[in-house]
Design a protein around this nucleic acid. Structure first.
Lengths: 212, 212
DNA sequence: GGAGAAAAAAGTGTCAACACTATCTGGCGT
DNA sequence: ACGCCAGATAGTGTTGACACTTTTTTCTCC
């Protein structure tokens, strides 16, 4: 008889340090910095030389990115960073709306008074490295939703943020919407907070698809 | 200048046929049939012999499943099918509630009258292989949400459905809730349909976690 | 007989070489 | 000059072997 339920095999990414892990982190980092753009090719031998490893670990890193849908590949065709069309970007935003709406509701219900006060304070005085979306995803108490947002969708969106720069007025508008969300959360009105977040994301989607 | 946006590199799983693909499909199939349970070990050499291939393709298949969070592994420790604790199952259901709620709303807005009528008819006369959840995920017009539900969450839940069998009364209750959802969709009341679907999933979650 | 350490076995991580496919390059005919 | 086909080149798919780690077995000592 197999003891299936032994020690909780957590689904959250443990901090490993194999060669494949290093290669994957490097590629993720270069996606985040913008060095790798949508459609950029990942050459296996080039990655091998870059990290002074053989192609085995490189291929395993690519396969994990493939599982995360950050790269695409057909047999013998080169692997490329995903390049999304207008329809697929809309799909990403719809997914994000669903997940971030839920994350906002959960964070509103679960954050401590102290953490919530800090969130409000930081939303009022926006620092350089503060992003309320990331903060909510981290605080929602659901590691699966957090990983989907932070490790998949946000990386995808970063790929396109640069080229579809925001209109001048949008920045202030977004700040105001962030503020309303924070207020609703502080009042523990989770239904309103979720609704406001979803509207906020839907407005951002409309801006993007109008331009295209 | 690199031409990034050339031919839409779709994110949807193309039908490839490399050895790694075959191994992955086999593992997925054995998860679906229940042969592989949570915590089951995936032995690389055993998989190699089983498919008469070397360990390379086997490892690549495992890495892709790892990207999908269906298996977990630490260096030199054997790879295992994920085994979720009570908290992690709750997280899966919260994720599912968010995504299926959105899928229901989108399907309600986008399905043709004919397809919707068929959905209602099949919900009224439930066949053996009909599942309204899968049908909505397929019809929502968002391939990313469909893949997240059908290729990740549903496989995960199948792992636990067997052992946490439903109470006797729950089956009829669920059928009634499915019926209400279908009616709301037929009336094109997308907000109500989404709300009903989310409540439906939340009730299923409560049943599970009460028992544990 | 049982707890602990050493040896053996099993399993995973990595590598270099070979096989196959797609893409690029150059020559050919029209 | 243009398109088309064959050879050369670059890149991916696969393999078997070796290195390292964990797990199991065996042996020793109390």
């Amino acid at each position: 008889m197999s003891d299936a339920q032994t020690s909780n095999l957590s689904t959250l990414d443990a901090e490993r340090d194999t060669l494949a892990d290093r290669v994957m982190q490097d590629v993720l980092g270069r996606i985040r910095t913008g060095e790798l753009q949508p459609g950029s090719v990942l050459n296996e031998v080039e990655l091998s030389r870059r990290h002074a490893v053989s192609r085995g670990p490189v291929r395993e890193a690519i396969r994990r990115l493939e599982g995360r849908k950050l790269v695409v590949c057909a047999p013998f065709m080169r692997t490329r960073i995903v390049a999304l069309g207008a329809d697929e970007i809309r799909e990403v935003f719809e997914t994000r709306e669903a997940l971030e709406g839920m994350a906002t509701r959960l964070a509103c219900e679960r954050m401590s008074d102290a953490d919530l006060a800090l969130l409000v304070k930081r939303t009022r005085e926006p620092a350089q490295d503060f992003d309320i979306h990331t903060e909510i995803a981290r605080a929602c108490g659901n590691s699966r939703i957090r990983a989907l947002l932070c490790d998949e969708l946000y990386d995808l969106l970063r790929l396109y943020r640069r080229q579809s720069g925001q209109q001048p007025g949008r920045r202030a508008e977004a700040a105001e919407e962030h503020w309303q969300i924070a207020i609703a959360m502080e009042q523990r009105n989770s239904a309103l907070a979720e609704s406001l977040m979803r509207s906020h994301i839907r407005r951002a989607t409309a801006r993007l698809t109008d331009n295209g």
